[in-house]
Amino acid sequence: MLKFILKKLAMMIPMLLVISLIVFVGLRSTGIDPITFMVPPEVQSQSPEIVDQLREELGLNDPLIVQYVRWLGDILHGDLGLTNKGESVADIIATRLPYTLELSAYAMLFSAVIGIGIGIISAIRQNGIVDYIGRVLAVLGQAVPQFLVGIVLIWIFSIKLGIFPAANRVSPDATNAFVDAFMHLFLPVLTLTIGMVAVLMRYARNTMLDVLNSDYIKTARSKGIPEWKVYMKHGFRNAMKPVLVILMYRIPALIGGSVVIESVFSYPGIGTTMANAVTSMDYNLVLVITLIIAAVMLICSFMVDVFNALLDPRVRLGE
């Protein structure tokens, strides 16, 4: 098992390098000069020598591969660099990333409880009212884009009803920080939860139905085991193994999806930071955030592989 884990960890390193190289070259190949966002237009027109000197100091005249190796070396030494405005990228990430993780964690928790719960009930009470409603909601949740769900929720709960705020994470004049944070988090968390619930609901239902139709469930019933024990001990436990794998795979989708949702709700997380960095062509900030998202995706994939290896020895034996 240790050999399997070390092998998977070793594979993550070249994958991160390839991803970083592709993004680095892709950004540099856009033809947009980051100097235009760093130096005021009047300085560019009146003092071109200052622009040339700054470009030379930043190493923008060097070949792409030299720029990439220099940037990668700084990253490996813990230096994330500066933004176009001269702000520390490390400080920005340290401030904004916890907000996105908080948003994603709440969405994952609520979607897991609601989606798996409704999916299991739908399978146990197949063709019942809960099953029909759940299937309709699952289709709608997957068909409607998340940004549109967010806009509709803002229109209903913020503009029409005035219950929840539509932007930011906290109010500057808040008297109760916990309640205020809850009010600001509710709509973006609900938006992310709706889409994820739809996926988990359908998958949990189908998996539970497959388990309930298996031979060992029929054997358990024939032995006179109470129905609730058949569902919980034999059905639920076995049905949750593949569902948990899907849940782990959805974590990167939550982090990546936050780019759109945070922009809709003006939530000051890593997603909004990423969108603003792309707009201003802040190469360094975009690269670091992309590397973080890629690392999260690879870590989640690694966790899924380890989880599958623990459940099935054939996986770690390469069969």
Rank of each mutant, 00 (worst) to 15 (best):
F4W: 04
L6W: 02
A10R: 13
L17P: 06
V18M: 08
V23K: 01
V25G: 12
G26M: 15
T30V: 12
T30L: 15
I32G: 03
P34Q: 00
P34E: 01
T36A: 11
T36D: 12
V39H: 02
V43S: 11
S45W: 07
S47P: 06
S47A: 14
E49N: 11
V51E: 04
V51H: 09
D52V: 00
R55S: 00
E56R: 00
L58C: 03
G59I: 01
G59M: 00
D62L: 06
P63T: 08
V66W: 00
Q67L: 01
V69S: 09
R70Y: 01
W71D: 00
I75A: 07
L80T: 12
L80M: 09
T83F: 01
G86Q: 13
G86W: 09
E87G: 10
E87I: 03
S88F: 01
S88V: 00
S88R: 07
A90T: 04
I92C: 09
I93W: 02
A94C: 13
T95W: 09
T95L: 14
E102Y: 12
Y106M: 06
F110N: 01
F110D: 05
F110P: 03
A112C: 05
V113W: 04
I114S: 06
G115I: 04
G119D: 05
I121T: 12
S122K: 01
S122E: 09
S122M: 03
S122R: 01
G128C: 02
V130K: 07
Y132G: 14
G134H: 09
R135W: 03
R135T: 01
R135I: 02
V136F: 14
V139W: 15
F147H: 09
I151C: 13
V152D: 08
V152K: 13
I156D: 07
I159F: 12
K160C: 10
G162F: 06
G162S: 10
F164S: 02
F164R: 03
R169S: 10
A174F: 10
F178Y: 10
V179P: 06
V179A: 12
M183D: 14
H184R: 08
H184V: 00
P188G: 08
L190Q: 07
T193E: 10
T193D: 13
T193V: 07
I194D: 13
G195T: 03
V197P: 06
V199Y: 13
L200H: 05
A204E: 10
M208G: 08
L209P: 06
D210M: 07
V211G: 04
V211I: 11
Y216G: 12
K218Y: 10
T219S: 02
K223W: 02
K223H: 00
G224C: 05
I225V: 12
E227R: 10
K229V: 06
N238M: 05
N238H: 02
I246P: 00
L247E: 02
M248G: 14
I251L: 08
I251Y: 06
I251V: 15
I255D: 05
I255K: 04
Y267W: 02
G271T: 03
M274Y: 14
M274K: 09
A275L: 13
S280T: 15
S280H: 14
M281K: 12
M281S: 11
A294T: 02
A295W: 09
M303F: 15
A309N: 03
L310V: 15
D312G: 11
P313A: 05
R314T: 15
L317S: 14
L317Y: 11
E319W: 05
E319D: 11
